[in-house]
Nucleic acid binder design. Structure first.
Lengths: 158, 158
DNA sequence: CGCAGAGTTCAAGCCAGCTTGAGTTCTTGG
DNA sequence: CCAAGAACTCAAGCTGGCTTGAACTCTGCG
């Protein structure tokens, strides 16, 4: 109980430790720092030191990425957390709820797509006029390059 | 009824027509062709001509992208279709079912994530030992750069 | 004290999925 | 027959999210 509450002697972690414990490469951590997602202080010899709570932030970043958010969006969200004082339960809770909405939306979207797919299996995609999938794309035209959806199992790998 | 069945006089479409009707930019269509996703024949003057069925292929590509597949994977799937003869209902049906599995998996994954998020809201992410989100990331470490998840509403735009 | 191993900073590279631009050629209606 | 507009081919560029490499510096055990 007296472990996170007592800020007495913070135990700072090196980038290597953070990398190891979070599973995120050190290069990625530096990148995150550049992007303002995490912060560090430096030792006399200019080496990064992280607070324990950074692990939590990183976990959150990863979860958010899985939900489908871009780093910039994640940064925005994290910026709403108090920079200095350790975030309270309520702080995280608020963030999580936003994520939850996104997730629900995304799940709903995929379910819609699945239903369309079902009807598509029925129609065999032969009656172009009728097929939901076919007709839908008219309005989609998702603009811009870059990330689109999940890519489970990296294509070029294995 | 005698419209898709009778192959008598194929009506070929220019890239402009295909672009307009599919909502996909001509440049993207050329790119798809480079990648082997669609095919065209050429006029005497070297301009592309597409079959009507190409629209269907494109619709399929778009749907698959929404499901979260990379173009390379989509190509693989499409390659299992008969290149020459117009795909039958059974052909598409088979493909659609694979998609459907992917979709189900993806939906399940997001639901799991949502549940974790719920429990995370409960724990407030304060008990690091217990939090699902937190502990999960240990094993995730999704490798490789590039597309990850959906990005609804392009970050840099609007 | 010495040296290996961990860290540091740039800059450049990579992959996906396209777009943009330059320079050229086809096609077609008036 | 000719000009406008549609298409063609490259090559280069762009966004995200990192990784890789080179060239150095710190830190800590023996």
């Amino acid at each position: 109980m007296a472990e996170e509450n007592v800020p007495s002697k913070e135990h700072w972690l090196s980038i290597g430790e953070i990398a190891h414990r979070s599973g995120v490469a050190a290069s990625a951590l530096r990148f995150y720092e550049d992007q303002g997602l995490i912060a560090s202080r430096r030792t006399a010899g200019n080496q990064r030191q992280y607070q324990r709570s950074t692990l939590r932030r990183i976990a959150f970043v990863q979860a958010a990425q899985r939900v489908g958010l871009a780093l910039a969006e994640i940064k925005n969200a994290l910026d709403s957390l108090p920079e200095d004082r350790t975030p309270t339960r309520a702080d995280w809770s608020k963030l999580s709820k936003t994520w939850r909405n996104r997730l629900d939306e995304r799940i709903a979207e995929l379910e819609r797509l699945r239903d369309d797919l079902d009807s598509c299996i029925g129609c065999g995609c032969l009656s172009l006029q009728r097929c939901n999938l076919y007709n839908k794309e008219d309005r989609l035209a998702t603009r811009g390059p870059g990330a689109r959806l999940l890519n489970v199992g990296i294509p070029g790998e294995a």
